[in-house]
């Protein structure tokens, strides 16, 4: 029990540093897919932080929304962003239409 209470500040510090580092990597990573996956990992560690702060309700909400739903939304948007078919062609059609007029 002694060691557990002694280790708690160490764990808190490590978790805080890991949160900051993951957020930094997620925001600075050149690859968008990697950035999103790092962001999901960041959300998972946030769940741990909520539990450490005695907020199990928030931890549950974050686990379901912050990691699950936000990650799915971001990945789906990235897939649609990378799919060639819609973006460019519509833009070019618009340009052509303007040129005709």
């Amino acid at each position: 029990m002694e060691t557990v209470t002694l280790l708690q500040p160490v764990f808190d510090t490590l978790l805080g540093l890991a949160l900051l580092w993951l957020a930094w990597r997620a925001l600075a990573s050149p690859d968008l897919f990697k950035a999103i996956v790092l962001f999901i990992t960041f959300g998972l560690l946030m769940v741990l932080a909520w539990v450490r702060l005695d907020a199990p309700d928030v931890a549950l909400a974050e686990a379901a929304i912050g990691t699950g739903l936000t990650g799915a939304l971001l990945l789906a948007a990235l897939t649609r962003l990378n799919s060639k078919s819609d973006a460019k062609s519509v833009h070019e059609k618009e340009q052509q239409r303007k040129a005709h007029n």
Binding site: A55, D57, V58, A61, E62, I65, G66, L69, T70, L73, L74, A77, R80, L81, D86, A87, K88, V90, H91, E92, E94
Partner: peptide, 27 residues
């Protein structure tokens, strides 16, 4: 904070769709 998390995810969803519209409009 729980309310905020739900609002944040709905705002994110709207922002992502807006981003896709920007992409469609400007390439």
């Amino acid at each position: 904070v729980i309310t905020g998390i739900v609002v944040a995810v709905s705002a994110t969803a709207l922002a992502l769709v807006l981003m896709l519209r920007v992409r469609i409009a400007t390439g």
